[in-house]
């Protein structure tokens, strides 16, 4: 569809869609794509990230969500979902100790799950931005 000025516009032109897509992507992995109507991509991303995260918890127990000793890892883990904050509150007391290889593998799995979700959040926000910004304006900016 072309505007009177001759620039093409996409069907949606609400910039808040970018914020909503990013927030939805954080609340539920793949939620950003679901907001944008891309259900298949949302399903693939959601299942993959959740399996990776749960596998990490299975290997290392919920003790790998360590808010005290491993803050940088926790920052990556919390990108998976706000639910990680709740798990972090449970493990804060240190009643789920885990050491050695299970700790490493569990932490790597859960953190990578969070970082993959961060990638998806950014990608969903970018896709929402591409929809929100008039095409002509976007092309002018990308030059």
């Amino acid at each position: 569809m072309a505007s009177p000025a001759g620039k093409k516009h996409t069907s949606r032109s609400d910039p808040t869609l970018v914020v909503i897509a990013a927030l939805a992507g954080w609340l539920i992995p793949g939620g950003g794509y679901w907001v944008l109507g891309d259900g298949r991509r949302a399903t693939v991303v959601c299942i993959t990230i959740l399996i990776t995260f749960v596998l990490g918890l299975y290997v290392g127990s919920i003790g790998v969500i360590d808010t005290q000793q491993a803050r940088y890892w926790y920052a990556a883990q919390v990108m998976t979902s706000p639910a990680v904050i709740l798990i972090g509150n449970m493990t804060r007391s240190g009643q789920f100790p885990v050491y050695g290889r299970p700790y490493e593998i569990g932490q790597i799995y859960t953190s990578i799950a969070g970082l993959l979700n961060l990638l998806c959040i950014i990608n969903a926000a970018y896709r929402a931005y591409r929809r929100a910004v008039p095409i002509g304006q976007f092309e002018a900016r990308s030059d």
């Binding site: 990776t52 790597i108 993959l116 990638l119 998806c120």
Partner: peptide
């Protein structure tokens, strides 16, 4: 244990 993680990375990266 690297293999499932590599699979996840490949799937999500390609999905984006």
């Amino acid at each position: 244990w690297m293999l499932p993680l590599t699979g996840s990375i490949a799937i999500v990266y390609k999905a984006t």
